[in-house]
């Protein structure tokens, strides 16, 4: 069982304190490559979260049967199998989206954040905690991906949620928000350099917020007598 406090601290860790995209800077390859619009970013983020939850749960359940010296091969095997399953399922049931995300689905296997959580957390904790931790970490990554995707999509083509029809079919096209009508487009934001620049700015804002919060704590702390 898990107390509310544990639950909250795991989520705080995943979303804020140890955020994979802004603090740990792990798994940046898909983060940078797929964040050119919100739908792509959200889809890849959720797929990664799903893999993380499943692999952490599996790793944690079998942790007592896996000798230390072969734990990494076993973890990689579990992750690779799960990713391939998700890859096949997406290919079969959301084919257009699969074509867009392409190589980055199988590449979730090599996303270091998945193995990092399996080894650093799931192999030492009970299944429930591990799954919650994985979901929190995955959602932290998804959050950054979506914000990055939103910034790049808005700056790059002046829309939000474009490509939603790839997930929900042709009729969903009406949900695309044309925030800036008649926008000329700013290609840099959509091309890879835009991902680096936008992520850099996000990290800077995050660090700035943290520095400000710390200063406030220091200012509020009573002077030692």
């Amino acid at each position: 069982m898990m107390t509310m406090n544990e639950f909250r601290s795991l989520f705080h860790n995943g979303l804020v304190k140890q955020n994979t995209g802004l603090v740990q800077l792990l798994g940046l390859c898909p983060l940078l490559a797929i964040s050119n619009n919100i739908i792509n970013a959200l889809s890849l983020g959720l797929a990664t979260t799903l893999v993380m939850a499943a692999s952490s749960g599996a790793v944690s359940s079998v942790r007592n049967f896996v000798p230390n010296e072969i734990r990494i091969p076993v973890f990689v095997l579990i992750i690779a199998a799960l990713v391939t399953v998700i890859d096949l399922l997406m290919n079969a049931f959301v084919h257009p989206l699969y074509l867009v995300l392409g190589i980055f689905i199988p590449l979730i296997t090599t996303n270091c954040i998945v193995l990092a959580r399996a080894d650093a957390f799931a192999s030492k904790n009970r299944p429930l905690h591990s799954v919650v931790d994985a979901v929190a970490m995955g959602l932290g990554l998804t959050m950054v991906l979506v914000v990055l995707g939103g910034i790049r999509e808005l700056a790059g083509q002046g829309t939000l949620l474009s490509g939603i029809d790839l997930v929900f079919g042709e009729e969903a096209k009406q949900f695309v928000l044309h925030v800036l009508p008649d926008y000329q487009g700013f290609l840099l934001a959509i091309l890879p350099p835009g991902a680096f620049i936008a992520l850099g700015l996000l990290i800077a804002v995050n660090n700035w917020q943290k520095a400000r919060a710390e200063r406030r704590v220091h200012a509020a702390a009573p002077m030692p007598a």
Binding site: V66, E69, V74, I78, A80, A81
Partner: peptide, 12 residues
């Protein structure tokens, strides 16, 4: 260890 790895591989 070989057996364990084999079982996991088989399962996967």
């Amino acid at each position: 260890t070989g057996t364990i790895l084999f079982v996991f591989a088989l399962f996967g």
